[in-house]
């Protein structure tokens, strides 16, 4: 389970928690989030711009 952060506003998508309001159940993998999904908080950045956190990837 990993986390992905919006480089614009800092919103984090955590696979473990999902995002209930966006309709992603806990455990929804990042790969299952639609490609055209934009950041839930700012919508300035898209899924493709998100950066993986947890130190696995810079």
């Amino acid at each position: 389970m990993a986390r992905y952060r919006c480089p614009g506003c800092g919103y984090e998508y955590d696979e473990q928690k999902g995002d209930e309001h966006e309709g992603f159940k806990p455990g929804t993998l990042w790969s299952e989030v639609p490609e055209d999904w934009a950041c839930a908080d700012c919508a300035v950045r898209d899924k493709a711009d998100f950066v993986k956190v947890d130190g696995l990837l810079a």
């Binding site: 908080d41 700012c42 300035v44």
Partner: peptide, 10 residues
């Protein structure tokens, strides 16, 4: 100040 708003909406 709409330019900054769109660049940083929150």
């Amino acid at each position: 100040r709409h330019s900054d708003h769109h660049a940083r909406p929150t």
